[in-house]
Design a protein around this nucleic acid. Structure first.
Lengths: 118, 118
DNA sequence: GGCGGACATCGACGTTCTTCGATGTCTTTG
DNA sequence: CAAAGACATCGAAGAACGTCGATGTCCGCC
């Protein structure tokens, strides 16, 4: 009853370089908060995929500094562009950034469950 | 020099329901750590998109409890399936879950910058 | 120039997260 | 049955995060 011991070659080859992992993780972390997701979603739904900050503060039910902080994080992550227009500030979605995330999530060989080990 | 005051109708319609936002955010949070991304990436690259835990502990440079903890978080998020085989435990990637994330990131009207306001 | 409004920044507080050593559970082996 | 190995669970410690009130900065307006 001997088994092929699966243990323990020193693998984890290049798979995902540590620097890439950190960069990607920072992106996901920016999306890992319900408030930020709703802000992003709301802005993306607006006419030019942009919105004035003054529209965003009140509906969230959070304080103005908190909303400003979340917008800054989304901006730092490259998910939002910032543009000042007179006294107001507009944030616009950066679709390329979202596409980059989608691209990072493509799975190799998605469906091979049926015809194996026949 | 009067402007259309952009302030402040009580919007943020349905956009992203709070419950959906929390669920999605939990998913992104699970991906928001470089260690977990590398674990996921490594497992996804293996023959059946699965790997024994014993392969995963040492290469990360982290302690066994820490790796176990990260795997648990990925499992709780539905990103990994867990299967015990004798004394060993294998984790397998759940591609549907990754696809679900990709689907959530589709952007409406990605490129309309050129031909506007002609 | 001075006032008020729109956002950003600062400092603080409580919560959550990452990590670890120690310990527990289960399985295989001698 | 006892010993050893593979993972999970349990605190605990330190870092990171979300939130707020107070304050600062910039702009438009009287």
């Amino acid at each position: 009853m001997k088994k092929f011991s699966p243990c323990c070659s020193p693998v984890l080859q290049g798979s995902l370089p540590k620097s890439d992992a950190e960069e990607l993780a920072a992106l996901f972390k920016a999306l890992g908060d319900p408030v930020r997701l709703r802000l992003l979603s709301f802005i993306a739904e607006q006419p030019e995929s942009e919105a004035c900050v003054c529209y965003l503060t009140e509906p969230t039910g959070l304080s103005q500094p908190t909303v400003s902080h979340h917008l800054k994080l989304l901006h730092d992550a490259g998910l939002l562009e910032r543009e000042k227009r007179g006294a107001w500030v507009f944030y616009r979605v950066v679709p390329e950034r979202l596409e980059a995330i989608r691209a990072a999530l493509v799975t190799r060989a998605p469906r091979v469950r049926e015809a194996k080990r026949a």
